[in-house]
Amino acid sequence: MLLNDKKRQEMLEKIMQYRFAVVETTLYLDTHPNDCEIIKRHNHFARKAKELMAEYEKTYGEMLCIYSDSDVVWNWPENFPFDFGKCCAYCKTSEV
């Protein structure tokens, strides 16, 4: 789902890239636990992903509810990555 907010979409995609690199190095390291070079890269990707997610959360609210500080307003219900509100015009019409 593309967001209308271009800056936010770019940030989200950057986070996706680093998170993906973390997933990929994790799977590789599961079967190659002694590959020091990849452990270094994994650590770099993991640190970058953490930094970027913290930065994103400061502006756009929690991505991971329980460990983030919430302001007075409870904004966890906002910004889920799916929205089927408009998915099927037929479902949304009241006429039968």
């Binding site: 789902m1 986070i15 996706m16 993906f20 997933v23 929690e62 991971l64 509810c65 910004n79 990555p81």
Partner: peptide, 13 residues
């Protein structure tokens, strides 16, 4: 498991 409000890869159609 913990849920993250982010897809693994952007979905476009």
């Amino acid at each position: 498991w913990e849920y993250k409000k982010i897809l693994q890869y952007p979905v476009q159609t």
